[in-house]
Amino acid sequence: MSTRARQKPAASELKQERAIRTRALILDAAARAFADKGYPATTILDVAELMGATKGAVYFHFANKNALAAAVTEEFYARLRADAQQVQEQGLAPATAIRELLTRTGAMFRDDQVIRAGARLQIERSLIDADLPVPFVGYTETVTGLLRAAGAEGALPAGSDPEVLGRVLVSAFFGAQHMSWVMNDRADMAERVEEILATVLPGGAAA
């Protein structure tokens, strides 16, 4: 083994790694706070206490609560994009990929605190003084693209317009997750996704 290979990481590298880990812990704590309490009721102190740190540690990475909310929202969309990419990389038939995507996304809304927080922050976006991504655009484009491919294979109901069907499907899904959250803390998300697929795509992706 060479001398270079045996060398320990430089102090600057270790500091950077710690900063990355700390930032991730802050985002996780902020997501839990936003998901449970909402943006108006959450404070920087709440976030600090959840991660067992001081407010100064939070402020070192984020200037204020608005910046925290923006970062959690960006992570929300990053996770949705990453999940969609994983589904597309499986090489499934388009109709099957739609089912897989909605099923996986439903599970994320049920189990992933960042996703739960991101959904709530989108509802409260008018209260957040930060530029947030426009909601639903990327997800709708992904679903619509899969629907076009499914239509080309004859896997959609006759006369279906993929553009319209994409908007309806995404609207139904995000509306259902909101109702599931309010009524059952999203415990029934799997059942709600099955209902949407069976109703909006009968004989297609729900087969």
Rank of each mutant, 00 (worst) to 15 (best):
L127S: 05
A158S: 15
E49G: 06
V200D: 08
G154P: 06
P202D: 01
N66Y: 09
A78H: 08
T22F: 04
A155C: 09
I44W: 13
F174A: 07
M179D: 12
T43E: 04
Q85G: 15
A149K: 11
Q86S: 14
V134P: 13
K55N: 12
E74L: 14
L101M: 08
G52A: 08
A67S: 11
L156K: 03
A53C: 13
L80N: 07
E89W: 12
G154V: 06
G151V: 09
V72L: 01
R99L: 03
F60M: 09
P162I: 05
F136D: 09
Q113P: 06
A158R: 13
R110G: 00
R125P: 01
Q16V: 14
D36K: 11
V114D: 02
A24Q: 02
V87L: 12
Q88H: 10
A107H: 10
Q122F: 06
R21L: 12
R104V: 06
A97K: 12
I115R: 01
N184A: 15
R192S: 08
I20T: 15
D46K: 00
I98S: 13
G203I: 03
G159D: 09
L165N: 08
E89F: 09
S12R: 15
V168T: 15
V72S: 03
S160H: 10
P162V: 08
D83Q: 12
G203K: 03
Y139T: 06
A187W: 04
E163F: 11
Q177G: 05
E195T: 14
A82T: 07
A152H: 12
G175T: 07
K65S: 08
A5Q: 08
A107N: 08
P157D: 07
F174Y: 13
M183R: 14
V134Q: 13
A93L: 11
A206F: 07
E163M: 12
L68V: 03
I44C: 14
D188H: 00
Y77P: 04
